[in-house]
Design a protein around this nucleic acid. Structure first.
Length: 420
RNA sequence: GUGGGCGUAGCUCAGCUGGUAGAGCACUCGGUUGUGGUCCGAGAUGUCGCGGGUUCGAGCCCCGUCGCUCACCCCA
């Protein structure tokens, strides 16, 4: 084989592409039902937007971006996440000059040059929302509940929602002083302490048991929350209870993007292995201003479509029944094919999913094909039927065959449909 | 980026201590003229990831390379 897909990309092809499509649409449904409107954006932006927005010290920016120079000598980067580009578009087109909050959603491919792994791809798919221009804690709760509703609509059960607050800038500044102080007193290896210098919060996320024990006595950010931040966070939790969204406070949660402030959350699936985060997000207070917009607060999330699919498969909840074909047409000759084609057009106009047996194959083979396509009904069009202006309609699961006139076929199937 | 495992027909894999490839599923055709899901028969399919090396001889050994995979790291 000469050509292969680039390393580490996720590709979806039949039959699994149907499942992928189902996952993406299902995650999108509660979003569309909550007043969010589509943002269809470029997959590349000028590099500086990401280094400023995501944060120059993050792993995403320092070692995971696909950056290249275009023909005009501009530095371009394939989007590694969705929020920054979304905000750029909101600012550029003045969407935040109208009524607030601005509520937008996106769906598409994102790129990170990481070593591939289960659930981690160089090109991956996310759907997400951004709600900009309101710091109402009820909005936090609504955003979180939309993500939760998406996962539940898939039928997922083995996941948990982890929640914390990163507070405001004073909160983090005060905490950082004490945390660095604490870390200075620890006996850490070189790599780890270097990581701590860059972002001391990272150490809370270390998977090694010995580091976890060392960090168990570290000062927690939640204990430093300002009065305002604390009240906001309490309020978010209270609203989540009103919405019946279960959550667990995880004060050690760390996110890899610098812009998060205040409410921060992550959905973690239990069956996924190392890459277990199926979605996450949070508030970003300074981000709009940082990339040249008004000083508006905002909150959003990104949900991993690839990982949600993996999770749905792991839980065995992928909806196969939704993939059935309604009608399969089998013409037994070229004249019959003409009839089949016009019949297919009429049936599709009546919103039936219709497939046709092409290639003039044996009836037996065509029947097998129809069976595998999951067709509910097969319509056999042969010369004997056409002579009488009718076709054979076979209901696959009962095996029952009836003769139906060509003119009444659409009506017959339409009335049958109510019994499906 | 670091480390481990793996790479044989479309898929899942078998190939014993090196002697030039197999199974199941899937696919195609058929089991008397136009009917599926079962059964039976027949058939097609591979530069054994790629490139070097060792050897009389390599799918099996060595090196490199590409890819997959798992973990670290990071995150969707």
């Amino acid at each position: 084989m000469k050509y292969q897909a680039p390393k580490g990309v996720s590709e979806y092809f039949p039959p699994r592409s149907r499942s992928f499509e189902w996952v993406r649409e299902t995650l999108l449904t509660p979003i569309k039902g909550s007043g969010y409107q589509l943002l269809e954006l470029p997959v590349f932006e000028e590099t500086e937007l990401f280094t400023r927005g995501v944060g120059a010290s993050t792993d995403v920016v320092t070692k995971e971006m696909y950056t290249f120079e275009d023909r005009g000598g501009r530095s371009i980067t394939l989007r590694p996440e969705g929020t920054v580009g979304a905000l750029r578009a909101v600012i550029e087109h003045g969407l935040d000059r109208g009524s607030l909050p601005v509520k937008v959603f996106y769906s598409g491919a994102f790129f990170r040059a990481e070593r591939p792994q289960a659930g981690r791809y160089r090109q991956f798919y996310s759907v997400g929302v951004e709600a900009i221009g309101s710091n109402d804690p009820a909005l936090d709760a609504e955003v979180i509940s939309i993500a939760d509703a998406g996962f539940r609509a898939l039928g997922l059960k083995k996941f948990r929602l982890e929640l914390t607050s990163l507070g405001d800038s004073q909160t983090r500044a005060l905490h950082r002083v004490d945390l660095l102080d604490f870390i200075a007193g620890l006996d850490l290896d070189e790599v780890t302490s270097a990581r701590a210098q860059l972002n001391p919060l990272r150490l809370f996320d270390d998977k090694r048991q010995e580091v976890r024990e060392l960090m168990s006595k570290a000062p927690m950010l939640l204990d430093y929350l300002s009065e305002e931040s604390h009240a906001h966070f309490e309020s978010v939790q209270s609203y989540l209870r009103d919405l019946d969204v279960e959550f667990a406070i995880n004060p050690r949660m760390v996110r890899g993007l610098d812009y998060y402030t205040g409410t921060t959350f992550e959905f973690v699936h239990e069956l996924l292995g190392a890459q277990s985060g199926i979605g996450g997000g949070g508030r970003y207070d300074g981000l709009m201003e940082n990339i040249g917009g008004q000083p508006l607060s905002g909150i959003g999330f990104g949900l991993g479509v690839d990982r949600a699919l993996l999770a749905a498969e792991a839980e065995g909840v992928v909806d196969q029944a939704a993939f059935l074909n309604d009608v399969f047409l089998i013409p037994l000759g070229t004249k019959e094919m003409s009839v089949a084609l016009s019949l297919s057009k009429a049936l599709r106009a009546a919103h039936f999913t219709v497939d046709i047996a092409f290639g003039n194959r044996a009836l037996k083979t065509a029947m097998k094909y129809a069976d595998k396509s999951g067709a509910r009904y097969v319509v056999i069009i042969g010369d004997t039927e056409l002579a009488s202006g009718s076709v054979d309609l076979k209901q696959m699961h009962t095996g029952e065959t009836t003769s139906v006139t060509l003119t009444s076929l659409v009506a017959t199937l339409s009335s049958e449909r109510s019994t499906w």
